[in-house]
Design a protein around this nucleic acid. Structure first.
Lengths: 194, 194, 194, 194
DNA sequence: TATGAATGAGGCTTCATTCAT
DNA sequence: GATGAATGAAGCCTCATTCAT
C-alpha cells in the first residue's frame, strides 16, 4: 500500500524514507531504530531525513497521525452508513482485517504498537476505540446491545480484533484475515449482542 | 507486591534495583530506560547494577523470566483444578485481574508490554496463551466450546482480558478489575461457549 | 548605507546576499552563521550563494577586504590633508563616528569584530591602526605629541574610539556618535598631546 | 595561574578540561572550538566533559562567570581602598595588567573576547566597566575628574587598558604590561583628570 | 540562472560498561 | 561491596557544499 505523501515530494526520497522508517519502527520500535538504520534501508544519507522532518520524533509522529487519521476516516465511512449494530460490527471487523491484509506493517504501527515514545500525540487522533464506542452507544439505544458495561464491551471487541491480528503475526493463524471477518464478528456479537 | 528475590539478597540493594528497573521498563520501555535512570530511582550508584547482573539486558530478562514463570504457574494452579470450562474461564479471568490489581506494573511488564527487546527470551516461558489453549482444547472435547476455530477463540479470550486491563490503565474503566471478573468471563463464555 | 557592488550585479540577488551576510556575521559571528541563515534572510535559495562566491569563507573575506579598504582609503583622505596633529585627530574621530552612525553593522563587522575566522586575511589590509601610527609619528616630529611610547599612545586613541562605539552599541551612550567627536578628540589630545 | 576548582574535583580530569577549554575558546572562539578539540587537548575522552558539565555551553559559561566574578572581586579589593582618584586609576590599570601578565589566556577570555555566544550570561556579572564607573562617579564628586560625559570618560579608560593589552598580544608592545602601568594610568589621568 | 534535495563529514551528546579508589 | 569518573562506541543532528532538474 502506498503511504500518503504530498504530491510535490513524489520524486524525492521521502517515500523511501517513510517506508523504511515505518518498517523499522514496527520491527524494532521507534527508540531502538536509529536514524542510520532508516537511512541505510531507504538508500539515503542520514542527513536526507532532515530535509523532510525536524527529527526522528517528528517523522514517527507524522507517520502516525497522517495515516491513523486516514485509516480511521475510511473506517468511519465504511462502518457508519450501515444502519444496524450487527452489520456495523461486521463492517468494522472487515475494515480492520482488510487493512491488516493490505499493509500489515502499517496496521501494526498504527494499531498494535504501543508507542510510549509518542506520548500525548497518540491521544490527539480519532482511534478505532472511538468508533467502537459510537457503535456500541447506538446499539444500546436501538436495543441491539445487551445489558452490561459498554466500556467492557468495547474492550471485548477491540481486544478480539487486535489479538486476532497479533495471532496472525505470530503465525498462530494463517492466510488473509479478511477470510475470518465473519467468524470474528460473530464471536463479538455473541459476546455483547442481545 | 514484593518481587521474587533470593533470600540471601534481601538486605542488599537488589530489591530496590529490581523495583526501579521494573517501573522504568514499564513506563518507558527497556530500550529507553538508561542504567543511570535505574540507579537514580533505586538510590544506588551507576556501577552497582553490575554486582547483581551482567548488564541491563540480563536484568530485563531476569525480571521477565522469573516473574512470568511464577505467575503462570500460579495461574495454572488456580485454573486447572476446576473441572468445567466455564469455571476455568472465570478462574482465569479472575486470576489475571487479581494479579493486575495487586501489581499493575508487574502485570504490564509481563503481559501487556511488547518487549521486542527481549527477543527469543519471551518464547521460552509458558504464557497465558498456552493455558488458554489448554482450556479450550479440553472444553472442545467436553463439548462445552462451540464450533469454530480454537485459535480465534483463544484470541477472543486473551484479547478481551488484556484489553480490559489496558482500558483500566487508560482510565476508561475504574476501580479494581477483580470486580469485573464475572462480567468479563460471561462475555467470553457467550462468545465461545455452546 | 549601500554596500560596494560591481555595477553589473546591481540587479541580481547579490546585494541582498551581502547585506544579509553582513548582518548575520555581525550579530552571531561568521562561524555561527550558516549558509542557510544567509539564504533565508536574503530571500534566496541555499545554492544561490555559490554563484557569487566560492563559499562562505570567501564571502566573509570579500566583504571584509572590499569595505575595509574603502573605508580606510576614505579616512586617509579626510584625515591626512589636515596639517596639524590636533586637527587630524579630530578628523580621525569624526570620520570613524560618521561611519559608525551611517552603517553601524558594517562598522562593527570591519572594526569591532575579532574575526579569528578570517586568519591572515585581516592582516593584508590597511587598518585605522596604521593611520593612527602615521599621525602620531608626524605629530611627534612636529613636536605636538608629548614624550612617551607611541604604541601606547596609539592604543589610547584607538582604544578610546572603539570603546565609545562599543558603549554606543551597549546603549550606555545615546544618539549619533558624531555629536561626541569633539569631546572624544579632546580627551585623546589631552592624553597624548603636549 | 591555577583555575578555580571545587576541592572535591581536584584529582579528576576537570582541571585539565577547564584549562584546555579556556585555551581553545580563547584561541578560536567558543563556537569554533569542538568538544573533540577540548577532549584531545585535555587528554581525555569526549564523554568525560559531560561528567562535569551539561554541555559545551555550560562549560563556557561556567568558566566565564566563575573567573570573572573572582577577578572583579579582587580588583575591587585592590582599587577601592585607595582614597584618591589618581591612585585608584593606577591601581586599576596595574591590577588589570598584572592579571594579564599572570594569565594572558584567562584575561583574554574574560575581558577581551566578545562572546556573542554567551548571550545574557555576560550581563549578570560585575565587570571592570562597573568598577570604572564607580571610580569616576566618586572622582567627579571629589572634584578630581574634569567636566565631561562620564560614560565617555569610562570608554577612554577601559578602551585604553584593553587596547594596550590587545597591542601586547599583537606584539606591538613587548614585555610585561605591569611595567607600563604608570604610563598608561598617566595617559588616562590626563584625559579625564582635572 | 535558480532551486532545494541530497550528500558526507563532522559536531554535540548519550550511554552501557569498566575500573581505580 | 560501593562509588562515580572515565571510556569509546554510537546516536541524533547540522552544515557547507554539490548537483539534478
Amino acid at each position: 500500500m502506498e503511504l500518503i505523501i504530498d504530491d510535490r515530494k513524489r520524486d524525492t526520497k521521502l517515500p523511501a524514507i517513510l517506508r523504511a522508517a515505518l518498517e523499522l519502527f514496527t520491527e524494532k520500535g521507534i527508540h531502538a531504530t536509529t536514524t542510520k538504520d532508516i537511512a541505510r534501508r531507504a538508500g539515503v544519507s542520514e542527513g536526507a531525513l532532515y530535509r523532510h522532518f525536524q527529527g526522528k520524533q517528528e517523522l514517527a509522529e507524522d507517520l502516525y497521525i497522517t495515516h491513523l487519521s486516514h485509516f480511521t476516516a475510511q473506517l468511519d465511512k465504511s462502518v457508519l452508513p450501515h444502519p444496524g449494530f450487527r452489520d456495523r460490527l461486521e463492517a468494522l471487523v472487515d475494515g480492520c482485517f482488510r487493512f491488516f491484509d493490505e499493509d500489515r506493517t502499517l496496521f501494526t504501527y498504527l494499531i498494535l504498537s504501543e508507542h510510549n515514545e509518542l506520548g500525548r500525540t497518540t491521544k490527539r487522533v480519532r482511534h478505532i476505540r472511538h468508533l467502537v464506542r459510537d457503535i456500541l452507544v447506538d446499539g444500546r439505544q436501538s436495543g441491539e446491545v445487551r445489558e452490561g458495561d459498554l466500556e467492557v464491551f468495547g474492550a471485548v471487541i477491540i481486544g478480539t480484533i487486535l489479538r486476532v491480528a497479533v495471532f496472525r503475526i505470530y503465525g498462530l493463524l494463517q492466510g488473509d484475515l479478511r477470510g475470518q471477518s465473519k467468524e470474528v464478528a460473530e464471536a463479538c456479537y455473541r459476546a455483547v449482542g442481545k
